[in-house]
Design a protein around this nucleic acid. Structure first.
Lengths: 249, 249
DNA sequence: TCCATATCCGACCGGGCGGTTAGATGACCG
DNA sequence: CGGTCATCTAACCGCCCGGTCGGATATGGA
């Protein structure tokens, strides 16, 4: 028999965690009782205590899981992107997929305050590390010319805000499929950051083709130059041209 | 004597509301007890019941107030902007100032679920109206050429997400002043939406000059054309040029 | 087969919170 | 001065929720 005793235990633990994350996301941490979580699994409250010592530990585990996923996205983005902008947008695409698809433990991000002091410190530290890494990608993009000069801290805040807000309006059965949303957001962020901003964006998210490369990664590998951004395209492509230096300093 | 009996009552009511909003924002609705709110005002729990029938009514009042401010911003933006993009960005600048400065009742937006059914329906209806209006501004901007073709619904979601996230990272005593943040966000959104995106943005929010026109409203009134966006500037200004049609459909 | 252990349940406890009530205080008005 | 009403408090109630406990059932190893 494959599933050993410990395997089963771990599997159930995961199930509890997922259910808890779902409930917390739906109604908020404080508004969710352990009885709610248990009911969602068809067991009673007391059963949960076989897998977690208390409610706060459950929340902490949600955060840990979410942060782990964040860093996984970061690694993937770093590996697959060809310049700073691509790496950043690939990372964020992954992040959003995680938020939408994965029953998203992540969005619990809203209730950090509910954590106990030491758990809180740990999560915040991790989150800071993640944000610092994103800012690093932005700086990288500015340096290699794929991203316009900007304040990395600010743009990262903006993007994370937009992403973390998604669960507020995303409707699982709705007309916008997760991949479409991820692609659309990447497109908008690309417009914001790219040193060669698009002249137009998709006018209907619902019409974005299913499989669509994110972060412009699949665009023709830029006829001319390579990894560092192609710079102003030869002429009248799908890119807008920015004018002048100014503001930057 | 100026303050009549009713005036005093109303003033205290407002004080209760502000305190409640502050507490709700800080710790969340469910995590805030009425005793907390009362303590913040130096009174006891029972006193609050002279001004609000129950805790939920308090929350509902917060939402009402917040939504009223939203529509005030909208009116102001509509009146002062010279094209769709300006009107939109002015509105959002006001919105953010409200969130940051005004002890922000608004951010309670996160706990809508805590409202009772009928209050909930009312707030959601108002919020939808507001979002619809913003989308209208986007469409307007696309039509008058100040905003690139895009999906209005999506970009509004993105912007509201970014804005509603601000309270998560804004620190009252910090290096970024509220006006700087408002200006910086407007600049980034401008980069995202403008049909003539800037070639660079501010690289340090903390260095943005105090009084700074928002939404590009104060830029030289565009030597040539008028209200509708100046279109691609004559040559090498501070604006990037976008290339081609493509994507739009 | 029998013991040890894991799993889960029903019942319970203690505390905290929303909400109520009775009464004390004081301001206004005739 | 006396009555009325607003204001606010202290004390209390009932409920719900996090957490615990003893016991029932099942599972697996020797």
């Amino acid at each position: 028999m494959f599933p050993s005793r410990e395997d089963l235990h771990e599997a159930k633990r995961q199930a509890v965690l997922r259910q808890a994350a779902t409930s917390f996301n739906a109604r908020g941490f404080h508004a969710t009782s352990l009885a709610d979580v248990a009911a969602g699994l068809g067991v009673t409250k007391a059963a949960l205590y076989h897998y977690f010592p208390n409610k706060n530990a459950l929340l902490a585990a949600c955060f840990d899981h979410a942060m782990a996923l964040c860093f996984a996205c970061l690694d993937k983005g770093r590996a697959e992107g060809r310049n700073g902008r691509e790496r950043l947008l690939l990372t964020l695409s992954g992040y959003i997929a995680q938020i939408i698809d994965d029953l998203s433990c992540a969005v619990v991000l809203l209730e950090e305050g509910a954590l106990e002091a030491d758990d809180y410190a740990k999560v915040i530290a991790e989150r800071d590390r993640f944000e610092k890494a994103l800012r690093g990608l932005v700086r990288e993009g500015v340096k290699d010319g794929s991203i316009v000069p900007c304040d990395p801290k600010l743009v990262v805040f903006i993007m994370l805000g937009a992403l973390n807000w998604v669960p507020k309006w995303y409707r699982p059965g709705g007309r916008w499929k997760p991949e479409q949303i991820a692609a659309a957001l990447a497109e908008v962020f690309d417009r914001t950051l790219s040193s060669t901003p698009a002249a137009a964006m998709t006018t209907e998210v619902a019409r974005i083709s299913g499989r669509r490369a994110k972060a412009r990664a699949a665009e023709p590998p830029a006829p001319a130059s390579d990894p560092p951004d192609p710079g102003p395209p030869k002429r009248r492509g799908t890119r807008a041209r920015t004018n002048g230096a100014a503001k930057a300093r």
